[in-house]
Design a binder for these strands. Structure first.
Lengths: 194, 194
DNA sequence: ACCTGAACACCGTTCAAGT
DNA sequence: ACCTGAACACCGTTCAAGT
């Protein structure tokens, strides 16, 4: 079975969901597909375009939906959060293409809720920035907290054991709290008085 | 003059402001300091901690200020935006340490404006997520737009010239528009009714 | 105590040459 | 048309050995 951009994008998405963005490298991708790194460049111009395509495929479910703005952005979070560093990917993809899903659907649902074209565009841009920041921040916190860096060079290793004992409850408490913060931000940004 | 973590952090900040995060590598840093890469690891445990320290130094001006929440976050944007990819750095730093400036000052000024402790913590977390997302998105748009990727593999190169002609006005229009979006988001998130 | 030399295990990308 | 081999110019990190 010969190579194709479709197969490459699919393999990249698998790597992303299974191992995280850090492991989506052209070389790793090549070996996963049983091919030499150079071969990928016959089908894909460079890594950035590949990532943009992965992001697009990932967010496709948010393209044709008639969900309200709040539900839509909740779905966005649910879709991106499980990808260990999906936030970073989406930030890149959004930089490359500010009309990735759920942007068009979000604008449409804002217009239905009574905003004119310009207002809908602006509000959706503000909401996307918040959502991207919230997801990326959440994921970085989860990722970098597990790495367990002391906060300064000379931090004593004394409080460590107690910190580790409560790490399970602490992280689950953080997770539910993050969901609340996200919902709270969305509510503020969707309030009628602005 | 021998090495020290202070000198390394300063050199890293210079590299960041002059060339961007992409060029802040341990090897580049070493050659800038006239030393071998391995030498850095005698003074700094790893790159991530180094970046955290750079971020801290960068945001130090936002530590002891009695500015209101809106002004504070405007200063945050003004400080981070000029660093070509300061948003990515701050996302990492915030992941490592959610109490980097301007968080404490922001919470304090929210309490002065009538929020209780818990409300102030939550609101500040929401605002920081928005600010981080907004700055990172803005910078990625600027960075990746200049790279001038066609939006699909087979995009014709016909519309290019006209796009390039108007790139100057377009990007300056985008810049001022981004400032508006940022202010708009802040206003919504600081509104009293949420 | 502080640094070098040298290695380990990686990156993205290009491109002549093969089929 | 599609892919390999091999290179170019890089990464972060470790660690014996030197001073």
């Amino acid at each position: 079975m010969s190579l194709s951009s479709e197969r490459i994008v699919r393999a990249a998405q698998d790597l992303l969901t299974d191992y995280g963005l850090h492991d989506v490298t052209m070389r790793r991708l090549a070996s996963e597909l049983g091919v030499r790194p150079g071969a990928l460049y016959y089908h894909v111009p460079h890594k950035q375009e590949l990532l943009r395509r992965v992001a697009h495929q990932l967010l496709a479910p948010l393209q044709n939906t008639d969900a309200g703005p709040f539900e839509l952005m909740q779905q966005f979070r649910d879709l991106v959060l499980p990808l260990r560093d999906g936030g970073d990917l989406l930030l890149i993809a959004y930089g490359l293409d500010q009309r990735i899903p759920p942007v068009p659907a979000l604008e449409a649902s804002l217009r239905i809720h009574g905003l004119d074209d310009k207002q809908a565009r602006q509000r959706s841009a503000v909401i996307m920035r918040f959502a991207l920041g919230a997801v990326a921040a959440e994921q970085n916190i989860a990722l970098l907290a597990t790495a367990e860096q002391p906060s300064s060079f000379e931090t004593a290793s004394l409080q460590r054991s107690s910190a580790q004992v409560s790490s399970a409850e602490a992280s689950s408490a953080l997770t539910t709290q993050s969901a609340d913060l996200y919902a709270q931000g969305l509510r503020s940004l969707l309030a009628h008085r602005n």
